[in-house]
Amino acid sequence: MKDAATPVLLEVRDLRTYFHTFSGTVRAVNGVSFEIGQGEVMGLVGESGGGKSVVGFSILGLIDSPGRIEGGEILLEGRDLVTAGEDHLRDVRGREISMVFQDPMTSLNPLHTVGRQMDEVLRLHSDLRADTRHRACVEMLESVGISRAAERLKAYPHQFSGGMRQRVVIAIAMLANPKLIIADEPTTALDVTIQSQILKLMRAQIADKGASMILITHDLAVVSEMADHITVLYCGNVVERGRTRDLIENPAHPYTRGLIDSIPDTSERLDRLNQIPGSVPDIRTLPAGCNFRDRCPRAQALCATEEPVLAPQHNGLMAACHFPLQPGERP
């Protein structure tokens, strides 16, 4: 879902990524489609096991055995990354698409200085000379709010706090001026005051460079403050997508409604939260029909036999539901 005026940067069509395990085939991503326009932020949300991280890894071609991309297309400015060779992907990673991971401790190499890890990006993806690269690294580190940058380049990751490490990871991700940043739970491991610093920083960096971002998170509050569009995943399928405010205020899919209602809100006081009953089904043995029907208050006989497909709803939303909610309606 992108606005008609903005040119498309990335288009994912019917992506299927399966993991062939001894206990059965896990259809982690099972027919996911979306588009991102240039300069847009798309939130990819859902609970554990929804397939949101696998979508991110699939785009970068980071799916390892027993996983495989079984079908679909990932078009970056029209070129398909699924059929592209490893050489081409290596050019794309870091230069055109970069990634920010959840845990800043494990995504930096503890044995190399921060400076060396930053320099590596430019060494691989630019023809700049060493002194120019060094200057670029200092500037980048300063722009993510790390003071005494030249000195800090010589420090190792363990000499930084969690928030500072995540700033370094963002600096590395931004260095080669990528067109798209995939941020997988970038602030989940951080405290709330640090989280708000990092989110502000990421937004400023993206606006500054005109890049696009896929923000993968379980936290609807974070995406609702950051994203232009939201795509909701459940059991490897897109169940709903649309513009952020429309989707948060009047979702059409009962799962989205349930997620929103599960979040306690400080502006109102409820005695009980409207919980979604049950838990996410085992993705290896998904039932026929709608994956959400066992937990859905609106489920009817049709939901058990026929799998709903994404269809246009009110306010330009797309939802995969036989009995979608109307604006203002509760399940």
Binding site: G163, Q195, S196, Q197, S224, I248, I263
Partner: peptide
């Protein structure tokens, strides 16, 4: 006050006081 203003919310922010903390 800083903690409350930093907490993300699904409701759009009213003109809430914003105290940004620097450092750690």
């Amino acid at each position: 006050r800083a903690l409350l203003s930093a907490a993300p919310s699904i409701k759009p922010k009213r003109d809430k006081e914003e105290i940004l903390l620097t450092g750690e």
